[in-house]
Amino acid sequence: MQRVGRYRLLERIGVGAFATVWAARDDELDVSVAVKVLADNWTQRADIRGRFLSEARILRKIDNERIVRVFDIGELEDGRPYFVMDYADKGSLDQRMDEGTIPVEEAVAYGIQAAEALSVLHQHGVVHRDVTPGNLLLRTDRDGKVRLVLADLGMAKALAESSGLTQAMGTPSYMAPEQASGHGFDARADVYAVGAVTYALLTGKPPFAATSMLDVTSRGPNVRPISLSAAGLDAPRAVDLVLTRALSHDPEQRFESATELARAFRTAMKGIRPDPPPRQRKRTGRAVLGWVGLALGVVVLFAGAFYAAYRMVG
Rank of each mutant, 00 (worst) to 15 (best):
M97G: 10
D47R: 01
D240C: 03
A264W: 03
T20L: 01
A24E: 13
M1P: 09
L247R: 07
R12D: 08
L202F: 11
S248A: 12
A168Q: 10
A151H: 02
R96M: 15
A295S: 14
I73W: 01
L136E: 09
L165V: 01
R96Q: 08
V15F: 01
A17G: 04
L261G: 03
A180W: 13
L202K: 10
Q167F: 06
S248Q: 03
N41L: 03
D26A: 06
A158N: 12
S248V: 01
A246D: 04
A189C: 08
D86N: 06
K90R: 14
D234T: 14
T217L: 10
Q253I: 01
E252N: 10
R3F: 12
P103R: 15
H122L: 09
I73A: 08
F83N: 01
S92N: 05
W42M: 00
I58S: 13
S92R: 05
K270D: 11
R219D: 00
H122C: 09
K61Y: 13
L138E: 10
T132Q: 06
L153R: 06
Y82R: 06
A117D: 09
R311W: 08
A56N: 02
D215K: 07
T20R: 01
S54A: 08
D78F: 12
R66A: 14
V4L: 13
A151C: 04
D26F: 09
S212H: 10
V108M: 13
S257R: 07
E260R: 12
N222M: 07
A238P: 12
D98Q: 11
T211Q: 15
R57I: 02
R311E: 08
L150E: 07
L10V: 14
R25P: 05
M85N: 02
V70D: 02
D94K: 10
F18V: 01
Y192M: 05
A19S: 08
G271N: 05
L201K: 14
Y174A: 02
I62V: 14
V216K: 04
R80L: 07
P277E: 03
P133T: 07
A168V: 15
A193C: 03
R266T: 13
R6D: 10
P274E: 04
L38R: 02
D40Y: 08
R283S: 11
D40S: 15
F52H: 04
Y310P: 00
A24G: 13
A156G: 07
A230I: 02
R147G: 02
Q2M: 12
D72W: 05
R283C: 11
E116Y: 11
V84Q: 05
V15E: 14
V146I: 09
S32D: 15
Q44Y: 00
L201S: 14
M85L: 02
D47C: 01
V127C: 12
G144I: 11
A189M: 09
T217E: 05
S162F: 00
Y192T: 04
L243A: 00
L137C: 08
A210N: 04
V126T: 14
G204E: 06
T259M: 10
L241Y: 03
K145S: 12
A258W: 12
V300F: 03
A168G: 09
A23G: 11
A176P: 05
G50S: 03
E99A: 15
M169D: 04
E99C: 08
I62W: 12
Q2R: 14
P225V: 00
P221E: 06
D98A: 08
L118Q: 10
